Amino acid sequence: MDCCLHRQIAHITDHLFLSSAAAVSGERVCGLNITNVINCTMDIPNLHMPGIDCIQIHVDDLPNANLSLYFDSVSDKIAQIHQRGGKTLVHCVAGVRQSASLCIAYLMKYYHKTLEDAYRHVKQKRLVIHPNFSFWSQLIQYERRIFRIEVDSG
């Protein structure tokens, strides 16, 4: 992975950012006026800084990991933070799979983007994203649920 892309903090919206864990530093978070960090790693510790609220979601990048359990709660949390005037950074180890998938779910739920449009939007902002097959399948199911898409069984 390109070192510059690895350390990039991508602006997904005016209040949502996406990055790898390596890009997260107190100086960069403060410089972007980020108020909340969502850490989607198994064992990388949260950033501890006054005025920065952090939550950790323990989901590994494995085919059997159920990231969809967090699509609504994380999306709602990002929306609540935005309503209060805050900004959120979502990161995982590489900023490629878990965190990207959660950002896509947020855009689907709160910006009413299709999965394809949400993916393209995030991909345009952070070129290295690549949800694994399982996360992609979970996002398809999420799209069907939130947009009430019926699956043709015929």
Rank of each mutant, 00 (worst) to 15 (best):
I78D: 07
D72K: 12
A21G: 13
G85R: 02
S75Q: 00
G95E: 06
H58I: 03
F133C: 12
D72T: 13
I44M: 14
S75D: 04
S75T: 04
A105I: 08
R28P: 03
N132T: 05
D72C: 08
I44F: 12
T114I: 05
I81G: 05
K87I: 03
V96K: 06
V128N: 11
L89V: 10
R126F: 01
V74K: 04
Y106F: 10
F17Y: 12
P131N: 08
I34V: 09
C40F: 04
E116V: 01
H15V: 07
H48T: 15
H15E: 08
I55H: 00
T13P: 09
Y70R: 01
M42H: 06
N46W: 02
C92V: 07
L16A: 06
Q56M: 09
H15W: 13
R145I: 09
D53E: 15
L32Y: 12
H121M: 07
L5M: 07
G154F: 04
Q124V: 00
I52Y: 11
Y111E: 14
I57T: 07
S19R: 05
R7S: 11
D53L: 12
T35M: 00
L115K: 07
R97F: 09
V93C: 11
S20V: 05
A100N: 02
D117C: 02
Y70C: 06
I38G: 03
I57Y: 10
G154H: 11
L115A: 05
Q80G: 12
V29K: 01
